[in-house]
Structure formats: C-alpha cells, structure tokens
Simulated scan of single mutants.
Amino acid sequence: MKRYFYRASDKRFWSIEDKETSYNTSYGVEYLGRERFGSKSFSSIETCQKNIEKEIQKKMDDNYEEITILEEFSGVSTMQDVWEIQKALKEQPLKYYLNISPPILIKALSRITSIEELTLRNVSQLPDEIQQLHNLKKLSINFNPNSKGQITNSLGNMEALQELNLENVFSIENFGNLENLKKLNIGFWNEGEGIIPQNIDRLKKLTYLRLFYAKQIPDTVYELKNLEELVFTYSEVKELPDTIENLSKLKKLELDFMYTNLMDQPLTLPHSFGNLGNLDELTIRWRKVENLPESFKSFAQLKN
C-alpha cells in the first residue's frame, strides 16, 4: 500500500509504500520537478509497520497532509502527478496549468467542467476526455516532438473554445466543431506533415490565424472573412491568391519565408491585393517582391 502526503506551504511532497518487511519513500519539491527515492528494511513486518507509522506521524506533525487517490488513478507514477490530480479534483480552478500531462491527468480534469483555461505541455496524444471540458475557452497544447502528436477528433464539439494554441503538432485531421474560435495559433513540428485541413473555413469567427511551418495551406484559409491578423511563419506560401480580397477586415499580414524552399523565388502580389482596404501593416521577410500591382498605391496607411 502506498500513501501520499503534501505540504502546500513550500510544495514539498512525500510518499511511503509498505513492502511488509521494508518500505520505499519518494520525496521532493513540486516546482523543481525532481523526485528522490529512499528505502529501509526491517527484521519483521511488525517492526516495519511501527516505523512506517512513526514516519507518517513525523510528516503530519510537520504540516504535511495526506492525499487520498481514487482507484482509477492508482497507475500514477510520480508524486507530482498525484498532487496535480488531487489539486484539480479538490480545488476545481477556473484556470489550470499542467507542466506534465499524461492522459491520466486529463481524465481527472475532465471531471471539472468549470475550467476555462488549460495549458498542457509535453503531451504525447490528446485523449478524447478533453471534450468533456465544455466551458473551456482557452486551450494551449505543446506536444512532445518525438511523439508525433496528432489532432484527430479529440477537440470534438468544444463550442465554448475561443483560443487554441498548438505547438509541435505533427498533423491535424480536422478542427471539429469549434464554431466560436476566434484565435488560432498552429506551430507544426518542423518534420511534421504541416497540412492545414480544408475545413478550416468552418471557423467563421476566427480573427487571428498564425501558421508556423505549414507546408500545405488550402485556399479555404482565404474564406475566413472575419480575419484581422494573418501570420505565416516559415510556411510554404507559394503565392497569394486573388481570393485574398475576401479578407476585407484584414489589418495585419505577415509573411516570413526563412527556412522555406521559397526564399529564392520572387513573390508577386495579386491585383486584388489593393482591395484589402483595412490593411495597415504588411511585413514580408526573406523573399523578394516583384511587380507590385497598381492597386498597391491605395495603401497610404501602411505602417511597414
């Protein structure tokens, strides 16, 4: 049997596991992210039990609190994970940050429908349970690059979501029904597929879009008529199509072609570019622009 203890004042954790004639301990400080281990053996089960109780009492006297872990979370391997679960289930915060996020933690968080902001780091795969966070407004996910993390149907019908940040994602199958999403930041892993799904045009309320290391960008991006800021960073934008004029609310357009295969190819702006009447900031890096359209003269308000 393993018992868990935590002291909130300095974020120290401690656990002890009964092995009949011996016990194992683990301890450390939460924010340092390091865990140390110890063990001790005895001549009999009775002697071991007495020493376990003595050690536990010392911790209780030193302001540690025992944490009760539900059976379905018994597979958690580190005390940091244990505390994350207990804290989530007990405090039910509106904002939550996980520096480590195995699926078991997300399953625990799925019980907390009040969460509005969630940051997950070092994620391998996103479990379907995240769809149960119906009130989530902001979600940031940083995938472990070695895991080839994918977005399939995991986002489902998270209709309350307004901001989605994805970093080191390998591939995206679809965006689900994110009808209220306003801000989307996609950072592909540089060795990932880098394909933006065709159904991105379903994100009708999107006002901000940043694509990092995108290799295939569908024309449906230019159907997002509420976009005010569009940023392509290290992305394979061969040409801007005439349909860019659909982005009539666009205020900022940024294209950075560093690390792409297009750096030596000139970029020609379409004639319809001049119809972007609200554009006041244009940045183009690492690619030469040739043959500016006559309509470009209408941009007297441009900052860059």
Rank of each mutant, 00 (worst) to 15 (best):
T25R: 03
L32C: 04
E65M: 02
T207D: 12
N226E: 09
S77E: 12
E72H: 06
I56N: 09
Y259H: 12
Y27A: 00
L279M: 05
K303V: 08
E84C: 12
L209C: 11
L211Q: 01
E173P: 03
T152H: 08
L292C: 01
Y234S: 03
K148M: 10
N291C: 03
P270D: 09
G33Y: 02
K205H: 13
Y97I: 06
E91C: 01
L98G: 13
N185M: 03
K138F: 13
Q80H: 13
A108N: 04
E72R: 13
D219Y: 00
L184S: 02
K288W: 03
K19L: 13
K297L: 02
S41K: 13
L282F: 12
D18M: 06
G187I: 09
P270T: 12
S114N: 11
V231E: 15
E65H: 07
S101W: 00
F37T: 11
S124W: 00
L164A: 01
L118R: 04
K58H: 09
M79L: 14
P145H: 07
A160C: 06
E117A: 00
K2P: 06
W83F: 14
N199V: 01
F299K: 08
E35Y: 08
P145A: 05
L211K: 02
H134S: 08
E20N: 14
K59N: 11
M263R: 15
D61E: 15
Q150V: 07
M258F: 12
G176A: 03
N261D: 11
V29T: 10
N180R: 10
N199L: 06
I100P: 00
I186L: 09
N135C: 07
K251C: 05
Y6N: 00
Y208V: 02
S154N: 15
M258T: 03
L161E: 02
V231T: 15
T47K: 12
G194S: 05
E53T: 12
E223C: 13
L211R: 01
E84N: 15
I69L: 15
N275I: 00
Y96D: 04
D256L: 04
N291I: 07
V123M: 09
Q198M: 12
L126V: 14
G187V: 04
F232S: 01
K183F: 06
I130V: 10
T47W: 00
S15N: 10
E66T: 04
V123F: 04
E281K: 10
S77N: 11
L302W: 13
F37M: 13
